[in-house]
């Protein structure tokens, strides 16, 4: 195997990784312990493997690891944790928008990319930004409510 070294910023820290040129970013992250990035469809449909790369939500199953070289990548481990959830995670909890939870890390990251760009998104913006994440449990209603809740909080000038 033709091993190569790449570097990128991962959750705010500069990191170096040895990669196989054929490896996807999803595989690289998971073998390095970032297992909140989930395996799903592996063809860019379900969004379970969502990460934020240079501010945009992308499917890490479609991105070759080398494409991340020099970029800024955020995984779910870079957001809140059980003790101090991120405001999007908190809203999902409050609205009961998590059942099996498999899609949740991807949902949170897609929402974060959206709110970073548009703090108070309209319905069309929410629909467009979240259309790459599938949830087989909740029927989306409660996820939608959580997004509206975060948006309303921003509208009132709440902390982001």
């Amino acid at each position: 195997m033709n091993k190569k070294t790449i570097s990128f910023t991962l959750n705010g820290e500069s990191r170096e990784f040895d990669i196989d040129p054929n490896e996807r970013l999803l595989g690289l992250l998971r073998r390095n312990g970032f297992k909140g990035t989930k395996y799903g469809c592996l063809e860019g449909t379900c969004g379970a493997c969502t990460v934020i790369m240079d501010g945009k939500a992308v499917d890490s199953c479609l991105v070759f690891a080398f494409q991340a070289h020099g970029r800024n990548v955020v995984t779910i481990e870079g957001l809140g944790d059980a003790g101090t959830p991120h405001e999007i995670q908190q809203a999902l909890i409050e609205e009961g928008a998590v059942q099996c939870g498999y899609c949740t890390p991807g949902m949170v990251l897609s929402a974060k990319a959206m709110f970073d760009e548009t703090p108070t998104p309209d319905d069309e913006t929410i629909r467009l930004h979240m259309d790459g994440n599938l949830c087989r449990c909740t029927g989306y209603e409660k996820i939608w409510s959580a997004m509206k809740k975060v948006s309303a909080k921003h509208e009132r000038g709440g902390k982001r």
Binding site: K56, V58, S110
Partner: peptide, 12 residues
């Protein structure tokens, strides 16, 4: 562009 796959794919 709006009818193109989904936001994740549109982003890349």
């Amino acid at each position: 562009a709006r009818r193109f796959v989904n936001q994740h794919v549109r982003n890349i």
